[in-house]
């Protein structure tokens, strides 16, 4: 046997044993490693973005943003092999957050409903799916909001459904019904450390207070140089009151 062949045999044997370690490894560790790998790519990318002059940042960000596709398919393989493992929920949650739900397929949603519906982490998954246009994601949110045994999770899923349609005028009735339900049934619900029922109630009251046809309440404030200004200084004029920022 030539030296080259010995080396080749050795390399093949090493490769095989590494692959065996790979299949036997704990799914949680594999999932963590895949996520950490993508995070590293993201961090390196963001460093490059920050190193650029500000006017170049946006284009570079949009054209070079590292897609999570590879990590998603690697995670999907682990998920499919270990559907009930607790770490699978972390993998599904990560995919949901990184792809706005588009990286999850029907099988993944079925798995979430079957094995993890009552888990407290489902609330966070629901929030990341709030703006997903994916019909399966929306139907999943409905299932969670109705069937999870965890009250916090049900409330959070209701909240996710509400914020997802908040700006859609054609769904104003549904938004109103969802938010009324949250205020009535989940008065103490906290989402990401915010008391959402309290905030929704204040918003509803504001909605009435600042409705078309109501007199605008006085505004007393200052301009950027500290000179006092009042809204009523402009009475007698048509006023376009523009809450704005240069971003």
């Amino acid at each position: 046997m030539k030296v080259r062949d010995i080396l080749l045999t050795f390399t093949l044997a090493l490769g095989t044993s590494l692959a065996q370690v790979g299949t036997k490894a704990d799914p949680g560790k594999k999932i963590q490693a895949i996520i950490a790998g993508h995070q590293k790519t993201m961090n390196e990318f963001m460093e490059k973005v920050r190193a650029l002059p500000r006017d170049k940042q946006r284009d570079f960000y949009q054209s070079g943003y590292p897609k999570p596709d590879e990590a998603v398919s690697a995670l999907s393989a682990v998920i499919d092999a270990n559907p009930k493992d607790p770490a699978t929920l972390d993998a599904l949650a990560w995919i949901a957050a990184s792809t706005r739900g588009n990286g999850l397929d029907a099988k993944d949603f079925a798995n979430l409903e079957k094995n993890f519906l009552d888990h407290e982490k489902i609330g966070e998954v629901a929030l990341t799916l709030a703006y997903s246009q994916n019909a399966e994601a929306q139907s999943f949110l409905t299932t969670v909001s109705e069937k999870s045994k965890s009250k916090t999770v049900r409330g959070t899923a209701l909240y996710a459904r509400a914020v997802g349609i908040e700006r859609d005028k054609s769904k104003a009735g549904e938004y109103d019904a969802l938010t009324r339900k949250i205020i009535a049934d989940y008065p103490d619900l906290e989402v990401r450390n915010r008391k959402v029922a309290v905030a929704l109630k204040a918003k509803k009251e504001a909605h009435v207070k600042f409705a078309i046809g109501k007199e605008a309440p006085e505004i007393i404030g200052k301009d950027v140089d500290g000179n006092e200004m009042k809204l009523s200084d402009y009475k007698g004029k048509i006023v376009v009151l523009d809450f704005w920022g240069d971003w």
Binding site: A202, K203, F210, G213, E215, L231, G236, L241, F243, W244
Partner: peptide
């Protein structure tokens, strides 16, 4: 209660929204 920007109100000369 503004939570989105820009938010624009147009008031008439009497100060009504």
């Amino acid at each position: 209660a503004v939570t989105g920007w820009p938010t624009i109100y147009i008031l008439d000369a009497k100060g009504v929204i």
